[in-house]
Design a protein around this nucleic acid. Structure first.
Lengths: 143, 143
DNA sequence: GACCATTTGATTGTGCACAACTTAATGTGG
DNA sequence: CCACATTAAGTTGTGCACAATCAAATGGTC
């Protein structure tokens, strides 16, 4: 196998990730969200109220990424943050009415992305299975 | 299909991209390179000398990303930059002796990543085919 | 109750990615 | 030859990602 940039899987994974980002950027612009912000909002729509810790576990992001991101969402009026009464170390992140209202406007985003990707549902499922195995394997070898 | 973060392919693509980054970080640390810098170096090892424009096309990166990245590689003594004599708008990027010497130390990086990913060669090829179709489809719909 | 490791977020610094803009060089139509 | 659009890099500003570090709160253990 010839060893060139184009032959590295990692290159295609990276390229796919950025290409997805670009499509999301277009779709999410009118909602005033970036892609990672959208993931956070989805998690909140789904679970209601979570700690920063739980967000980090769900999205595989650390506090160095989440703290400023959540501040921006708070500044945009979509999110509330407050220290947990039970454990003062934890910060609970919840939705404002504006944040909840945004869900309706965002509901057709996944469908849009799905069409843009141009894969059959079965292919999506297969891709997902493969990627998850890769992530699990990579995680194991990076510590 | 239930609509949760974990069910979005884009999430897995993104996660895989970052997990790959993490493994590269570990392997490339001793070479003093980041992953995007490694891609640039590979392109130079392969083609010898290219313009910034060609680098951008090959790696799908724009000048806003490449200019500071190349400056860092130049500061590290791995790369030379000079205006093309034929077209003063173009900047030719070439390797220093140190940059060329680094190839030998980097030659087993792809093998290391391949093992860390834990896929069979046939699966890698299949994954690559799928991702390329997705990228092509996404590119078409993001303009 | 005092000491100490652990947990949880926040902060700082570096680097990637991209949009928008600027500048210089090139090429083209009049 | 001259105005004009085009092209190639660079610059600036914003946001994501992560390493390293810090501070506060918590939960033992002696």
């Amino acid at each position: 196998m010839k060893l060139s940039v184009e032959n590295l899987v990692c290159f295609d994974v990276h390229a796919a990730s950025r290409a997805l980002d670009a499509v999301y950027r277009g779709v999410l612009r009118e909602l005033g969200l970036t892609y990672p912000q959208y993931l956070v909002m989805m998690t909140l729509w789904e679970r209601g109220s979570v700690t920063v810790k739980e967000l980090g576990l769900a999205l595989r992001l650390d506090s160095g990424t989440l703290s400023p991101l959540l501040k921006r969402l708070e500044a945009a009026g979509l999110v509330r943050r407050e220290r947990s009464a039970a454990d003062e170390r934890s910060v609970l992140v919840g939705l404002t009415p504006e944040g909840e209202a945004l869900e309706e406007r965002a509901c057709d985003v996944p469908e849009h992305i799905f069409r843009a990707a141009g894969l059959e549902p079965a292919e999506v499922a297969e891709l997902q299975r493969t990627l998850r195995r890769v992530v699990a394997s990579l995680d194991a070898s990076s510590r």
